[in-house]
């Protein structure tokens, strides 16, 4: 898709004020809003591909990145998104280990709020942390991942990658494979993809799929061959290596044998299948390098590129609401 890069007025005309102050959960997004956000993000993709990448849509606004958990890619993605829209960006990485949750998190929020940021991007190891912060600050809060709960901008960028690859998300069969239990990416994707009309499957060992996932409106498979048979998209999740010690899976070699994506299993998917991964990858554990690096089927690099564009779209929409207030 080669949309010409938009000018500032063009972007302004496409940007709609987001109906909510905060961006916490994929649950808050209606299908039309997602479509608008993806359209806007599409235009930012074109912008990001030209030499002059900078707009002054967020001029004068302060974006604060508050990452209690380390993250290189999401934090730099938000930082670039903010800077390309002309915001002042501050990165804060409080040592999560020295902070006890709950009260201290709120204390931090109150302190930061007094510095008058406009947009607060938060990542925290506890589910619900972003929502808690949102109750305590006057600015807009963007959830960049809270525990095992949600990572809504990841779901948006995944949807954008799929829409650009297939034309539309509606009707696609998407197999999300691996450690669903601990994955916020999976939860946000299940919600967003279903909102967009995709058929979602969850594939993994029963120890890594929540027992109640059957009721999420998805199909659950414990046999990967069955799970990815006929799938248009295979989305691999990262297996945290510390899961080996908790009796959740026996070993990396057994995991790769049954749940790792290799050519043999992938051959069962639909023709033209695309492979995705939210990163960072464990090559040889959940995915064969051979597949990850095959640009004909891997969307993994696209996902990173879409990440910046999607986050620009989210920030721009939130800022448009702030402008109207």
């Amino acid at each position: 898709m080669n949309t010409p890069a938009p000018g500032l007025d063009d972007v302004r005309s496409r940007t709609f004020p987001f109906p909510r102050r905060h961006f916490i959960s994929a649950m808050d997004l209606a299908r039309l809003e997602i479509g608008d956000l993806l359209d806007l993000a599409d235009s930012f993709v074109a912008l990001n591909r030209q030499k002059a990448k900078k707009l002054d849509l967020l001029k004068g606004r302060t974006l604060m990145n508050l990452f209690f958990e380390n993250s290189t890619r999401t934090q730099s993605s938000f930082e670039l998104a903010g800077k390309r829209l002309g915001a002042d960006v501050v990165n804060m990485s409080p040592r999560s280990s020295s902070m006890s949750k709950g009260e201290t998190l709120i204390d931090t929020a109150v302190t930061l709020n007094a510095m008058r940021p406009d947009l607060l991007v938060v990542r925290h190891a506890s589910s619900g942390a972003a929502g808690l912060l949102a109750q305590k600050v006057g600015c807009s809060v963007v959830n960049a991942g809270d525990g095992r709960h949600e990572h809504p901008t990841q779901a948006l960028l995944d949807a954008l990658s799929m829409r650009r690859a297939f034309g539309q998300v509606d009707g696609l069969t998407v197999a999300i494979c691996g450690d669903v239990l601990h994955s916020r990416v999976a939860r946000s994707n299940v919600i967003l993809l279903q909102t967009l009309g995709a058929h979602v499957r969850l594939v993994g060992p029963p120890t890594l799929i929540p027992g109640s996932a059957q009721r999420w409106g998805v199909q659950v498979f414990h046999d990967m061959r069955e799970g990815i048979a006929g799938a248009d998209v295979v989305m691999m999740l990262r297996l945290q290596l510390e899961r080996m010690t908790g009796a959740l899976v026996p070993s990396t070699r057994e995991y790769f044998r049954f749940y790792g994506l290799d050519r043999e299993k992938l051959a069962l998917a639909a023709p033209g299948v695309k492979v995705m991964h939210p990163g960072p990858m464990n090559r040889g554990v959940e995915i064969d390098s051979d597949i990850a690096d095959d640009l004909a089927i891997s969307l993994i690099q696209d996902q990173v590129e879409m990440g910046v564009a999607v986050r620009m779209a989210v920030l721009a929409s939130l800022a448009a609401r702030l402008d109207n207030e």
Binding site: T245, A247, L248, V249, P250, S251, R253, E254, R257, F258
Partner: peptide, 15 residues
């Protein structure tokens, strides 16, 4: 069922 019959880490049940 568990590695070394120690009751902690899971053995390679599938393999």
């Amino acid at each position: 069922a568990t590695k070394g019959l120690l009751g902690k880490g899971m053995a390679e049940i599938g393999l």
